[in-house]
Write a protein that binds this DNA or RNA. Structure first.
Lengths: 225, 225
DNA sequence: GCGCCGCCTGAGCGGACGCTGAAAAGTCAG
DNA sequence: CTGACTTTTCAGCGTCCGCTCAGGCGGCGC
């Protein structure tokens, strides 16, 4: 079992290396993002422990880049702050799990073991419906060749619709997934955001990807309209 | 895929149930530890979402008990406080993963998915009777190659008839399943909607899928007419 | 053949639903 | 603090759909 640790803080990196080797893992260390990316590309690691804050190239970008290149080595992210935003972002960029600093050794190793047992994740790099594309890692979207600027919410909605393309999804389902599970407001917010997406993705191109299914919800045409 | 949610906070439990069901998981809820344990023992769940703070029996003990009894269903723990102590303890008692409250929906589902051994994502099958087809997920229906536009009610009725194709279903059965359980109006409404379906699905194609069985109800021909 | 009862049919009403523009509230950087 | 931008709320409006109703048709028993 071979592990790559990408961590710039030398004391921590050395500690991890020693500890993991004691657990029986062959361990390599990269001290910045650029080196980390290079090593991850060159060697078939069983898992990568990846700090988010890195000189050279941050952990998010490193992970996203690997995924774009079709490298699905399990990634365990180390995040300094806590809070769900980081977690969600880590998972979105293709990390498989994360541990919040400061962490205990026991937890890290347990998580790492679980990750390796599970094996490489398989997550589609980009979501598509016809010429409508969305890259969750890069947080970019296109209609054909032209890139579309979307806000965070708009992207979240588009991503959800793309993951269920061809299916009808109700407004309350959308609320549950795109907003917080305990969202208290009016379902009308969904209509408002659907309209925004239409204005950006359909209207300028004279297309009709976002269909209303009265009494049921919305459907993103599987062929992108 | 069947999930058990053990959570005493009713709003959260209801939200989780609804959301997970939207994701295609059959979801049961237990509101305290004792019930949770009982249900986990009785049913072969694919995963258990388990709050730590519970009336009756706390999450740690519940999980430990299951493991002692040789039940190894994957457990995802919900922990209110954060800090490594909880995490380590959760992992020690046999939990496979944990999420710290408050969590976002995205994170929870991602973790849950990771936990469950990835089976093929299967959309609910298309319902068919001869060349008459209906896709419940996409909310679309076809007669042969041509797609038929139906309203919400019309679809609900068609779906019900398709699920009972070849059988005679009475008007009151139809009312009970397609309309609200406590529908107060006239049974004539069924006749009206049967007519609408005939106008859309049979007449244009010179077919006769929807048979009237006088005094008994209606039957959708198993071969689509 | 006759009448009754169950089913069919067309039209119309009222309300639910979704759409829309704008303004208020919240968020973030400088 | 200010200003730009995003998110959310709100209210008006038009359309569509679910339901009712009343009259017509036709099968079935007598």
């Amino acid at each position: 079992m071979r592990i790559l640790v990408v961590e710039d803080e030398k004391r921590l990196a050395a500690g991890l290396k020693k500890g993991l080797e004691a657990e029986g893992f062959a361990t390599d260390v990269a001290l910045d993002g650029t080196d980390g990316l290079w090593m991850a590309r060159e060697n078939p690691y069983d898992a990568i422990v990846l700090d988010i804050m890195l000189p050279g190239m941050n952990g998010y970008r490193l992970c996203a880049t690997l995924r774009e290149e079709g490298i699905w080595t399990p990634v365990l992210m180390l995040t300094a702050k806590d809070g769900e935003f980081d977690e969600a972002e880590a998972l979105d960029t293709g990390a498989d799990d994360f541990v919040t600093k400061p962490f205990s050794y026991v937890v890290l190793v347990a998580r790492l073991r679980a990750l390796i047992r599970r094996g490489a994740a398989e997550r589609p790099a980009v979501l598509e419906a016809g010429d409508l594309r969305f890259d969750p890692a890069a947080r970019r979207s296109w209609r054909g060749p032209t890139q579309i600027e979307l806000t965070a919410r708009e992207m979240a909605l588009l991503e959800f619709l793309l993951r269920h393309r061809g299916e009808v999804v109700s407004k309350s389902e959308i609320i549950q997934h795109v907003w917080d599970y305990d969202f208290e407001g009016d379902l009308n917010i969904v209509e408002v955001y659907i309209r925004r997406l239409r204005n950006k993705l359909d209207r300028p191109f004279n297309r009709n990807a976002l269909e209303t299914v009265r009494g049921a919800g919305y459907r993103l045409a599987a062929d992108g309209g």
